[in-house]
Design a protein around this nucleic acid. Structure first.
Lengths: 189, 189
DNA sequence: ACCTGAACACCGTTCAAGT
DNA sequence: ACCTGAACACCGTTCAAGT
């Protein structure tokens, strides 16, 4: 394509924000394979190399997306709420984040470098809440996180919105089953 | 490279077996990114195109690997054993398969076509065993499978064999915690 | 500072040709 | 039947050059 080279005349050039928006859209639409630096550049109407002025490389792009999506999971959580409803709400927000962006989640699983920021903070918050409910917080932390992951990823196989809603309802029931067990264990364990 | 072209003189040419062995080794050593058709061909001392006479494409290769690894999980399970120990043994064999080949597991997650054979049979067997233990088999099936996945994948972050062993012990404890809850639920639920 | 084209070392897969 | 080289349409990333 014959695009003018050099810096564009006006100030509205490429931004990290716009790159992340487009990258997330590619990921959501076509899975990890669809998110290539070249496809991303094409979608933004730019050459692939322009991207490297705003993100270090593809791994950093995934890490930034992880921060954007999973960072939001911890926002808006009142810290004066009782532990159990707070735990339940946090887990459902996490499940929803996984379910909305399964390809991102899978990509992060394979990219240990992206497993640094928001996901660790979520785990820490989870542990803090669990510590107030049961002495055995480590196994419960794993069980609950794994369940959110697996159940959220399964959401991507839903045929339509109705089935997705049904899956979410069943996830919520299973979560309540687990939280009921946790409550029983916490009391006499 | 100057390799003789055409069919090799003796009968010991490339086999699907040898391709799967090498593919699994690449996957285990370097993750999904390391398993390219070209790297696989190089490791086997062959041109990339030779592979296509034995496997349809990369997706079929992953599906065949899935069948090899997860097919073994169901083998050697006596069907006259009581449901609970049979369930426990099946889940631990599944966990071990995931833990031994995390990259394969992750690759299959992203490749819906590979989610056909052995994994579905494992789920079916799990459901059959659970049906004898609790009326609520669907949520427990999800909880137990998700836990095996998550915990097995976490195994790949272990620094050494000692830590891996410790993680496995903790997984087993968490599994027994869940099975204890399941037993309690089954009785009065 | 930010964008460009050209280049390098890769991919998966198809095709026509060898034996 | 099974292997080959050449080709096509892709990758991520680096570099030197433009404005």
């Amino acid at each position: 394509m014959n695009r003018p080279r050099g810096r564009p005349a006006r100030g509205q050039g490429l931004t990290a924000e716009a790159i992340l928006d487009a990258a997330l859209a590619l990921l959501d639409e076509g899975g990890e394979a669809a998110l290539s630096m070249r496809a991303l550049a094409t979608r933004l109407g730019v050459t692939p190399m322009s991207l490297y002025h705003h993100v270090a490389d593809r791994a950093a792009l995934l890490a930034a997306l992880s921060e954007r999506i999973y960072g939001g999971v911890l926002d808006g959580a009142p810290d004066d709420a009782p532990a159990e409803p707070a735990l339940r709400a946090l887990l459902l927000r996490y499940y929803d984040a996984v379910g909305r962006h399964p390809a991102l989640t899978l990509a992060i699983f394979a990219e240990p470098a992206a497993f640094a920021g928001a996901t660790l903070r979520i785990t820490a918050q989870l542990e803090a809440l669990l510590a107030g409910l049961t002495p055995q917080f480590a196994p419960w932390r794993d069980i609950l996180v794994d369940h959110a992951h697996g159940s959220g990823l399964a959401l991507s196989a839903a045929r339509d919105a109705a089935q997705a809603k049904d899956l979410r309802r069943r996830h919520e029931e299973a979560l309540d089953l687990l939280l009921g067990q946790l409550r029983a264990t916490g009391k006499h364990g």
